[in-house]
Design a binder for these strands. Structure first.
Length: 182
DNA sequence: CGGCTTTGACCAGCGC
DNA sequence: GCGCTGGTCAAAGCCG
């Protein structure tokens, strides 16, 4: 699937969407565990022009359907969206994702892809779509909180911390720090 | 053979 | 009330 060996992207914006004011620890539990195993280049730019992107801020994103098409309001508690300059739509964030849907959305010429964390019992989902205005950017929206550690945490336990500040999302006590993980 | 991707269909919420 | 839209399901096919 994605070849992360040559990933080069720039994290230009991130959008905090947790309307329930989740804990900062929650943030790090999603993306702080491990940004990537790849030699990626991260550049967190001061968000002076955060785009209000289609879908990224929709309140409907907190509604999930259960089997049979019925929607259920999930207690996702946390949402976050990144706008990333990347050649690849899929960033290797250390978690294993399983694609479960693809949809063309209005106001966007690019399809939106839906992924679910493939770890058993983990309900975290993410949407990935290319920026309609600038296809070189990818909008990645995470919904929910991982109830498990990133599979690559162990990997990071064995090497010096190389996680840029941008990935810690202002959380100085982030689990991003491998030493905080037993 | 198991896991993953693809893709069409289905459903409910929302706006008009 | 109706149509549009977004999100998910699930079967089929693909791949390692």
């Amino acid at each position: 699937m994605e070849n992360t060996d040559q990933v080069h992207f720039q994290l230009s914006d991130y959008l905090m969407l947790d309307d329930d004011a989740s804990e900062e620890d929650s943030r790090s539990s999603i993306i702080g565990g491990c940004p990537s195993q790849s030699p990626i280049t991260l550049q967190k730019v001061a968000g002076d022009s955060v785009h209000e992107h289609t879908g990224a801020t929709t309140p409907r994103s907190s509604h999930m359907k259960c089997k049979g098409g019925k929607k259920m309001k999930m207690d996702v508690g946390f949402r976050i969206a990144f706008r990333t300059k990347s050649e690849l739509e899929i960033m290797d964030d250390g978690f294993k994702w399983r694609k479960y849907g693809k949809k063309s959305v209005k106001n966007s010429s690019n399809p939106r892809n839906y992924y679910r964390c493939s770890s058993g019992g983990c309900t975290v989902k993410k949407r990935v779509e290319r920026d309609n205005e600038d296809p070189s950017y990818v909008i990645t929206s995470y919904v929910g909180i991982h109830n498990h550690e990133s599979p690559c945490v162990l990997y990071y336990n064995q090497i010096p911390l190389m996680v840029p500040d941008g990935w810690s999302l202002q959380s100085s006590h982030s689990s991003c720090n491998p030493h905080s993980i037993a």
